[in-house]
Nucleic acid binder design. Structure first.
Length: 479
RNA sequence: GGCGCGGUCGCCAAGUGGUAAGGCAAAGGUCUGCAAAACCUUUAUCGGCGGUUCGAUUCCGCCUCGCGCCUCCA
């Protein structure tokens, strides 16, 4: 077990990690704004966050992880009004799609899913606390945060507040502010717009207040970890710090972890460039969930991930190799006993796997540890050196591997069907396949290779791959 | 302009002051009735120029190219 070290955006250094209270890690993740389907860039960040929590659990920590759904913002208000439905009705569809996508990518569910609109009261109370401490000022029915009052502003993102010039930005709200860098805690309703009636007036919350209010409500005033995409560091997280620490006087977050962005073919993903993809876009093209997860997980989170279809294909091949190895381990009969040195070799690989992940979630390094062991074990098997007595340890290694990467289970087709892809043809049943495989074996017995190959082709057409082995057994798998 | 990240084999991608992990792909080979799978072999001197050093891909400086943030954004 290696010391866990994480990069902390606050300070920009890699630091040893330990939760504040014993064994429990309290973590908050900025979830999606449910105004549309989330895209693969979003999921790069959510897969990172998933690997983080899976790793901490593997290391024995108890997770208390909260993820919010931002279900009120300008886009949602505008879109729901345009569609003539309530905010809740409008966002429900995308919230559900998000849950479905997470499940498809094997992203574990956090301990708490929460919605901004369920916590308006908490936000109002936090704003009131800030009012009492004079961190706020009203303007045209809205309430603003006075950044001049918070000296630490800019520390997270290394932004010099003096550098933000008045009038330099396009502020869609165009309310009167004392300083250009001040931000809205509470927004006065525009005519016809949905609003909440509260002790601090009519209106709706600013974007940043929800995370401060909800994070502290569920996790206490000082959290262990707060994650998000790198773009959120400024201004969102910077503002969260200002709000939370302004109200409590305590450190809001001990470790800030941000995922770098995903690029597509080296360019920023955007709708105008036509390189904007949701999961559904990829699945419709025939790519598998496990391949996408592997592609997103294999590049360490602090490095920009250049998404390409070639890369996705490479990821699919890698996953296939991993699964083939697991199948070989499970199905072949090896000589009894243990191979000299194998147990130690497996333990060494597990050590290196842990070392990689402990090193700021270096998934590339962890992966290399797994593939090294895989190759060496395959060699031992080919030579006939590998023994049955080592199978359990090797499988345990793979099980641990999969507690992090979650790509071993051959359930892609099932997941895709659940999303409505490929439902038309779920392929032949296991029984039907077994029957054809048996027929083919019989044909091979009588050396009727024409018939044997005909059956194999028939199965291939229907997506089933046959593999003969030396000992006469046959393995089949769905492609 | 300010802040930050990165340029390592065809593609993806680790890494170290003492001549560079892993994955994918490619070529040849072993095995196989044929395939498939698996294995073996082969393929890099680390963007450029200087500096420090016995020695730098790894440290420093400059340059160059790409990307991100600074305004909503994972």
């Amino acid at each position: 077990m290696h010391e866990i070290r994480f990069h902390n955006t606050l300070g920009g250094k890699i630091e040893a990690f330990a939760p504040q209270n014993g064994n429990e890690v309290r973590m908050y993740t900025c979830g999606p704004t449910v105004y549309d389907y989330a895209h693969i860039g979003n999921y790069r960040t959510f897969v990172f966050q998933d690997i983080l929590r899976r790793f901490l659990k593997l290391r024995g920590f108890k997770m208390k992880h909260v993820m919010n759904l931002t279900d009120v913002d300008d886009r949602i208000i505008a879109n729901s009004a345009a569609a003539g439905v309530s905010i809740r009705d409008y966002t429900e569809k995308y919230a559900q799609a998000f849950f479905d996508d997470c499940k498809t990518l094997s992203i574990e569910s956090p301990e708490h899913w929460i919605r901004a609109t369920d916590h308006i009261d908490d936000m109002v109370r936090l704003i009131e606390r800030l009012q009492e401490k004079t961190y706020t000022y009203p303007s045209e029915g809205s309430i603003y945060y006075r950044i001049a009052k918070f000296p630490h502003y800019g520390r997270l993102s290394n932004i010099d507040v003096a550098g933000i010039q008045a009038g330099a930005r396009v502020d869609v709200d165009r309310y009167e502010k004392e300083s250009a860098r001040d931000f809205a805690l509470w927004k006065a309703p525009k005519p016809g717009e949905h609003f909440w009636e509260t002790p601090i007036g009519k209106g709706r919350p600013g974007w940043h207040i929800e995370c401060s209010a909800m994070a502290m409500k569920y996790l206490g005033e000082t959290l262990d970890i707060h994650t998000g995409g790198i773009d959120l560091a400024f201004p969102h997280h910077e503002n969260e710090i200002a709000q939370s620490e302004g109200a409590t006087g305590k450190t809001f977050v001990r470790y800030w972890m941000h995922a770098e962005h995903l690029l597509v073919e080296g360019e920023k993903m955007s709708k105008s460039l036509g390189n904007f993809f949701t999961l559904r876009d990829l699945f419709a093209k025939g790519y598998k969930p496990s391949a996408l997860r592997f592609a997103l997980a294999s590049v360490p989170y602090r490095k920009q991930l250049n998404f390409t279809f070639d890369g996705l294909q490479q990821a699919a091949s890698s996953v296939e190799r991993l699964r083939n190895f697991a199948a070989r381990l499970a199905q072949r009969k090896f000589p009894a006993g243990k191979q000299k040195g194998m147990a130690a070799r497996i333990a060494e690989a597990a050590e290196e796997f842990d070392a990689g992940l402990s090193d700021d979630l270096n998934t590339a390094r962890a992966l290399a540890a797994a593939f090294d062991l895989l190759r060496e074990t395959n060699i031992a098997m080919d030579k006939g050196d590998f023994r049955q007595g080592d199978v359990a340890a090797a499988q345990e290694f793979l099980a641990n591997f999969d507690r992090i990467f979650a790509v071993m289970e051959d359930n892609d087709a099932e997941k895709l069907r659940a999303l409505g892809f490929g439902a038309a043809d779920s392929g032949p049943s296991d029984a039907e396949i077994d029957k054809l495989v048996a027929d083919r074996q019989a044909a091979r017995q009588r050396r009727d290779f024409a018939e044997s190959d005909r059956i194999r082709k028939e199965l291939a057409v229907r997506g089933i791959l046959i593999e003969d082995s030396k000992d006469g057994s046959v393995r089949w798998k769905r492609k």
